[in-house]
Write a protein that binds this DNA or RNA. Structure first.
Length: 839
RNA sequence: GCCCUCGUGGUGAAAUUGGUAGACACAAAGGACUUAAAAUCCUUGCCCUUUUGGGAGUGCCAGUUCGAGUCUGGCCGAGGGCACCA
């Protein structure tokens, strides 16, 4: 038995794949894209999974005749380069380029069908100069603004983070507790598109529900109204926002944020200062927020109730009211809002019920918690008897007609702060003039290039520290000016790379014809961790670009989205509590493991997603060298559905390589077989069965059930292997096997191609014709039930009618022993599926 | 606290969407071949029965149905998202 030489075969085919072109000029376009990697040094198993799934889809579509765009690039700006550079005294650019070289070679070792002629790298000036131009376009279209705001300051990375980059009060990368700091920042006005970003989710049936829901919650639309209360004895009003104007007659207090305008007069008040301190002490940790007590401070200022004469409400300063949402003020209706309820209980404020549930329609019973359900209005003057929806409409009309408020929709979504005080990013093309104005640089002066002679060891912003870089001249006036020394958030870089891929050599950011031809991406594949950040920003960019250029057709970048699961591995800890790499550990059995060197016991921990910090990583290159790229690909596609997490298992890859060896053996056996003629009726059955496998595999790939496709290949192999010894002529055998091997090309491109060459296949890259008619002449395994219990399974021809089926099934001894001598009261017959005798 | 998703053998999982539960694979045990090992192949997998066979069974409890892993209601458990958003 000849051992398959994976290394030799793969090397040979990778030369041919080096810059794969999957173009069928006459075919329908198909843009297949996987999220591009950050060049951190080496690829990891997550990349292997992501890009293998993408490669299956790209090759599959190509073989089916589509004109496929399958590019790859590098998300190459970002902090790690800067840190690594600082540690090893290297230039970030060099460090990044070295990593790209290594990772590109590794990706090529996987046999991916990537058109490397399209490669882009975001840290390349040829890329970011276009981004600068787009930034200026956005600026001129009113999509960029500068605001002084409290920002999330990451004290470790010494930079600003977007809200989306703060997870449980900590930096998404550094895990440092985020601080609040006031800074002047550049913002992309993503909130201008809140409504579109929300509504257009409905235009994306090809996205996972889960991701759409996460984005919906993130945008957080709430529909309500703004309402003004007159402050008693003063000629001033206070504006609040509410989604429950219908409960206005249940209002018993007004609550404002500590940063509210009305608090200014208390800035020197001892009680207020004390209160404010108390509020700020409640930290940003998850725990603190969950248990945060509602506290307030009575201002002794009152407002007039707009609809109840002579009724006044007290104004409280409350810790649970946020300044940056709505107007930083609310009215409290304790009976119908849990927070207001808690607050009212604590400060002995009245709890007036204005919505009754149906059970105790008009009773004014004591409430144990706020009632937030539906019901009819009570205690509400002209609203009484209306349901909530009608009451809302009525009261809003009244508010509008009295000119004390208006309909209003608020969003949780905030504008996207893009300024970063870092070196290794795209310079923001703005300059500060002597007169204090801030203007974009003239487009003719682009690109604003990063300086290479930069000191990264001192603290603070490296571009600002540079002796001369920031000094420039305003082109129009010839006067000296200072460059913006902040760089753009790297999420900006990745918000349009998919458009650049359509025309990567274009002198302008994009070529309109190419963009309109290829966009949107037909299949986007990546991790669920980008459900909000990257995917929301990219959607915004597409819309913003369209606003700047009416010729752009697409308003959504990604037609179909697939989020693949993570690659997991068991974790190991030494007795001292130190993490161990899998290859430092020898497994004795399921639960027991020892340290290979020290022979001491090792604690086996749960399987978790591979990460360097837990050392539960497996190096893809090592695996490829040991088992071959096809085996690694085959394993990572088998067993688990692509959207779920997968457990890495050494025995699993080994099993994969054994199976591929069997495919190789089968190829050799079939070649050596001399038998020319076989039994015609057996051959007919054989052909049908092969066509059925093709049909099923084709369908499972289309539906992304790649693990099921793999299972079907195993079955198909078993069937073929048995067929060798049956009376099947060699021509038919080769024909059948060829079809199956072609279907395998997307999964194991090297081996499948090699075997097809050996079988002298001429049309390797053409997908076998999928015969839907095989389903028509299928034999049916008919289930025969008695009282709903399956008693026998009988093979029958398709489309038999009831009386025929009854005739056949009654003959079965397994069935007849249950129905003999019994009266059949009913027969349930489902064509081609089941017959059920009821006795 | 609110919202979402998911619970199927020792393990990863299939199941034509209401019609044969456990395909396919990993691990385990037993066996075949071999002087032996590796490789390869076969068998088994809960309960009762020597076998033929029969029974239970998809987190738990109920319901709809001739028939439920799939539908409905309630409970339990796991994972994820949001964080006082008025």
């Amino acid at each position: 038995m000849e051992r398959v030489n994976f290394q030799a075969i793969e090397k040979k085919w990778q030369k041919k794949f080096e810059s794969s072109k999957l173009y069928n000029k006459k075919g329908e376009k198909f843009y297949c894209l996987e999220m591009f990697p950050y060049p951190s040094g080496k690829i990891h198993m997550g990349h292997v999974r992501n890009y293998t799934i993408g490669d299956v889809i790209a090759r599959f579509k190509y073989m089916k005749g589509f004109n496929v765009l399958h590019p790859m690039g590098w998300d190459s700006f970002g902090l790690p380069a800067e840190n690594a550079a600082r540690l090893n005294n290297l230039n970030p650019k060099k460090w990044t380029e070295q990593n790209i070289d290594i990772m590109k070679k590794q990706l090529q070792m996987l046999g991916l069908s990537i058109d490397w002629d399209l490669e882009v790298s975001t840290c390349d000036v040829e890329y970011y100069k276009h981004q600068q131009e787009m930034f200026i376009d956005f600026y001129n279209s009113g999509l960029v603004s500068r605001k002084e705001t409290y920002v999330n300051w990451d004290p470790i990375e010494k930079t600003v983070l977007a809200n989306e980059q703060v997870i449980n009060g900590r930096g998404w990368r550094s895990n440092a507790v985020v601080e609040r700091k006031k800074l002047s920042q550049w913002f992309l006005n993503i909130t201008k598109y809140s409504t579109e970003l929300l509504d257009d989710l409905e235009k994306l049936p090809g996205w996972p529900q889960k991701v759409k829901l996460m984005q919906k919650n993130w945008i957080g639309e709430s529909i309500g109204c703004e309402l003004e209360f007159k402050i008693k004895d003063e000629n001033k009003n206070i504006k609040i926002f509410t989604t429950r104007p219908d409960t206005i007659f249940g209002a018993s207090f007004i609550a404002v944020s500590v940063d509210h305008e009305i608090c200014k007069k208390f800035l020197n008040d001892k009680n207020f200062i004390k209160f404010k301190q108390k509020c700020s002490k409640i930290g940003t940790t998850e725990e603190a927020l969950a248990n945060a007590e509602k506290i307030g401070l009575n201002t002794n200022i009152f407002v007039e109730h707009p609809f109840i004469k002579n009724k006044t409400l007290p104004i409280y300063v409350a810790n649970f009211v946020l300044m940056d949402y709505g107007n930083g003020a609310i009215f409290g209706c304790p009976a119908h809002d849990q927070r207001d309820f808690d607050f009212a209980k604590k400060y002995n404020l009245p709890i007036i019920r204005v919505v009754s549930d149906d059970k105790n329609s008009t009773k004014n019973g004591e409430l144990k918690e706020a009632y937030t359900g539906n019901g009819k209005m009570i205690n509400s003057d002209f609203l009484n008897g209306l349901d909530i929806v009608k009451a809302k409409n009525t009261i809003i009309e009244k508010i509008v007609s009295q000119k004390i408020g208006k309909k209003q929709t608020l969003f949780r979504l905030k504008d996207w702060g893009v300024s970063r005080q870092r070196y290794w990013g795209c310079p923001i093309p703005m300059i500060y003039l002597e007169d204090g104005s801030i203007v974009p640089v003239d487009k003719s002066e682009l690109p604003i290039m990063l300086p290479e002679d930069v000191d990264l060891k001192s603290s603070g912003n490296p571009l600002n520290n540079h002796p001369s870089w920031k000094n420039t001249v305003h082109k129009k006036t010839g006067k000296p000016a200072i460059r913006e020394t902040d760089t753009l958030d790297t999420f900006v870089d990745s918000s349009w790379y998919f458009i650049r891929f359509c025309s990567p050599k274009s002198k302008t950011p994009y070529n309109i014809n190419d963009t309109n031809y290829w966009m949107p991406v037909d299949q986007y594949i990546g991790g669920i961790e980008h459900a909000i950040l990257h995917l929301l920003y990219s959607r915004f960019f597409m819309k913003a670009m369209k606003q700047c250029d009416k010729n752009i057709i697409s308003s959504e970048p990604f037609k179909n989205l697939f989020t693949q699961g993570m690659v997991c591995h068991e974790t190991y800890k030494d007795l001292d509590g130190n993490w161990l790499y899998p290859d430092e550990v020898e497994k004795i059995n399921e639960k027991k493991a020892i340290n290979k060197l020290k022979k001491t016991d090792v604690k086996v921990g749960p399987s978790e997603s591979m990460s360097k910090s837990k050392k539960n990583t497996i190096d893809p290159e090592t695996m490829i060298k040991q088992y071959g790229a096809d085996s690694v690909r085959w394993f990572i596609l088998s067993d688990s559905p692509p959207e779920k997490d997968i457990q890495w298992s050494d025995t699993g890859v080994y099993a994969a390589s054994k199976f591929l060896q069997k495919i190789w053996n089968l190829t050799n056996i079939i070649i050596s077989k001399k038998k020319l003629n076989g039994d015609i009726s057996k051959e007919k059955i054989f052909k049908n069965k092969i066509d059925l496998y093709c049909f099923k595999i084709d369908k499972t790939i289309e539906n992304f059930h790649l693990n099921v496709a793999v299972a079907q290949f195993y079955e198909a192999y078993r069937f073929l292997n048995e067929a060798i010894n049956n009376d099947i002529g060699n021509k038919i055998l080769v024909e059948g096997f060829t079809k199956i091997l072609k279907l395998m090309i997307p999964f194991t491109p090297h081996l499948a191609n090699e075997c097809l060459v050996k079988l002298e296949c001429k049309d390797v890259n053409i997908w076998p014709k999928i015969e839907t008619k095989v389903l028509e002449n299928l034999k049916i395994n008919f289930a025969v039930q008695v009282n709903g219990k399956t008693r026998d399974i009988i093979e029958m021809n398709k489309d038999m009618n009831e009386s025929e089926v009854v005739k056949i099934t009654k003959k079965s001894s397994k069935v007849s022993k249950y129905i003999l001598d019994k009266k059949i009261s009913k027969i349930i017959f489902i064509k081609n599926k089941i017959i059920n005798y009821i006795i």
